Structures are given as structure tokens and as C-alpha cells.
Simulated scan of single mutants.
Amino acid sequence: MRVETTRLDGVMRLLPTPHHDERGLFTRTFDAATAGEAGLDPAAFVQDSQSRSHQGVVRGMHGRVGGGEAKLVRVAHGAVLDVVVDARPGSPTFGQWDAHVLDDADFVVLYIPRGFLHGHQTLTPTADVCYRIDAEHDPSEDVAAHHLDPDLAIAWPAPVTTVSARDRAAGTWAELAARLTGG
């Protein structure tokens, strides 16, 4: 497993080496030594979650305030366009987004540090997304920005078929940015 940085400070891609043969494949999805070499505390991750979504579904853009959470995100089945937005006041990339295809062919794991919004769109008939999170969920810290917010202008690759009621009701990036910066 090797690590690549991305254009957003702190966001990393952990790249495993899937081994294919006549039986199928084997890949390591997490390596504590590699995580440690990249500056992550492997023991800090306290919760694993999984979502399954249908093609076109968008989940996000979600984040946490207060203590927040960092996460490792990977796809066990299918493919998604995974999107992160820098929501760290004072960051030189505050308000900018980046996107990465995560799939069950390459098994890339995306590390998302605290202070980012996160979401994804399912690109295949179904996709299972796995999250390893470093803090227990505290609903009082939940924040969100609308996935179609024109200020973010996220380029979803396909028409959005379904979002949750919570995501449909999410506020604007401008409102969230003002809250985060005290403006």
C-alpha cells in the first residue's frame, strides 16, 4: 500500500495493490503501518460503517463541527464519485472541493481529515461504501451544505436520482461558511 497526497491539504489516497488470479482477487483495505507512516494514528479509528446506494443517489454534503471526525472511505462493491469540500476556516483551500472515483477495481481508500464536508454519487447499479471513523457520531455536531449549491458547483457526473429529505433541506454553502467563520 502506498500513499498519495491530493490538492486539498490533509486529504490522502491510500493505494493498495489488488492481487487478481483465477479465483478472483485479494486486497488489503487497511494497513496500520502505512497509516502510521502517513501520520495517521491507526488506533484512533473507533467506528466502522457501511452504506449501500443505488445508481444516481447522492449522499452528502455532510460534515461535523466541534470535535468533528476524520474518516477513511473506500468502496467494497461498485463505484462512486467521492467528493470532499474544505470547510476549515483559515485554510487556503476553504470552500474548494475535490473529487475521486472510488471503486471495487482499484480499492483506493480516501483519508478525509477533520473539517471537511463529504458526499458521494453512486456510479454503478449499486455501491457499498465503507467508512472507518475516528470519533463516535454526535448528531449535535452535524452540518451540511446542499449538494447542488451553486457556490460549490460540484460537477456530479450523472443526473441525481435520489437524495434524503435531510439532504434536500440542507442550507447553502454561504450560510454554512458564515457559521463556520463567525461571519
Rank of each mutant, 00 (worst) to 15 (best):
H19K: 09
V84S: 11
H147Y: 15
S51G: 05
T17P: 00
R168N: 03
T93G: 04
E37F: 02
M61G: 06
V143R: 14
P159C: 03
H100A: 12
V73K: 10
D41H: 04
E22F: 04
V73T: 07
D31C: 13
A38S: 14
R7D: 13
A145L: 05
D138W: 02
H147T: 01
A165G: 07
T17H: 13
P125Q: 08
R114T: 15
R168P: 00
G63S: 11
M1Q: 01
D128A: 06
L148T: 15
A174W: 02
D41F: 07
P42A: 13
V73I: 15
V65Y: 08
A99T: 10
Q55W: 10
W156P: 09
A153R: 13
L148C: 14
P18W: 07
V75Q: 09
L180G: 07
I133V: 15
V75R: 10
D21M: 01
Q121S: 09
L8P: 07
D86S: 09
V3C: 12
E136W: 10
A33W: 00
P18Y: 06
H120E: 12
L40H: 11
Y131S: 06
A169C: 00
W173M: 13
K71F: 06
G78A: 03
A87K: 05
V101I: 15
F26K: 01
E141S: 15
L110Q: 14
T161D: 05
L72R: 11
R52E: 08
R74M: 08
A70Q: 12
V83Q: 08
P159L: 06
P113W: 12
